[in-house]
Design a protein around this nucleic acid. Structure first.
Lengths: 154, 154
DNA sequence: GCACATTCAATTGAGAACAATTAAATGTGA
DNA sequence: TCACATTTAATTGTTCTCAATTGAATGTGC
């Protein structure tokens, strides 16, 4: 009886009951799937995310990339310097506002998009999941993320 | 027309269509929620995960913790040394197999469990989500993670 | 019993992440 | 105009993460 009471009180602390751990470990699992695919492109996963943003819209301020990916300048500044060293992007100060750094794709960076097109399909295959299923999960998780961020923003 | 064709071909590369980014950004959002709560306990989030494992079962090999959390010795060795420096755990070589390092809670580490009990509820509140909803998402995400890991394990 | 493979932890190096601080540019109110 | 606040990146320090390597302990086949 006392035993059972304790076990019940411990339920909230059980690792397998925590959605945050499911998400944390799923993020690592995705990273493991992406790694060999992105190695061929010479990108890490966060670098790939930056390139996805730039392939959608080129010549954006660092700040915009940070807002899109929920990353700050302490993360992005060195990451973008590595992408510049790899000749995939170019960093220039804005003429209108010298505080801003504008990020533009080089021809190589633009060209890498074609090589990246096969990546999503291969990840999809590894997930062994249908597109509608994944799409539904994606929306739920993004909504949860937005609620968490909203809870912190007050 | 040509415009539309391009847009369709670009769909798989759109950031907002990628479940991996939803998960990646949700993991960061959780981290942001946990940070102030865990600061009071003197723990980081990965350290908290290790403590969750130990609060379930004490005196386990490093390797078992790694398998449970999907982390390797390169991550755990320095992390565990910090927990030992904080007097929350004790690391000892196994008598039966000198290669293994056994991790045991100190009285302080055991005691921290009581202070940690309030954490899950506060995270739950920030998620603004019902327990059944979270539980269902958790199971789906964990299943996706397991399929991804299985795809890599071959 | 001994060569060989395996297991396990530790180390090293590169990259990612955030907090806190600094510094420069810009905007604003008196 | 000038003091002050705000915005934006960059820097620094700590921690986490993995890949690759090293080294010690253990197990196995002959």
């Amino acid at each position: 009886m006392a035993r059972k009471q304790l076990a019940v009180a411990d339920q909230p602390l059980r690792l397998d009951n925590q959605i945050c751990f499911a998400i944390y470990s799923a993020a690592h699992a995705f990273n493991r799937v992406y790694k060999p695919l992105l190695d061929r492109l010479g990108l890490t996963y966060p670098q790939y995310l930056v390139m996805l943003v730039l392939w959608e819209k080129d010549g954006v301020p660092l700040k915009d990339i940070g807002e899109r990916l929920f990353l700050d300048s302490g993360t992005l500044t060195p990451l973008l310097k590595r992408l510049e060293a790899a000749q995939l992007i170019k960093r220039t100060r804005s003429k209108e506002d010298e505080r801003q750094v504008l990020i533009a794709l080089t021809p190589q960076g633009q060209g890498l998009k074609e090589q990246a097109r096969t990546v999503p399909h291969q990840v999809l295959a590894a997930s062994a999941c249908s597109i509608p299923e994944l799409s539904a999960m994606k929306s739920e998780i993004a909504a949860l993320r937005d609620r968490l961020n909203a809870a912190m923003g007050e």
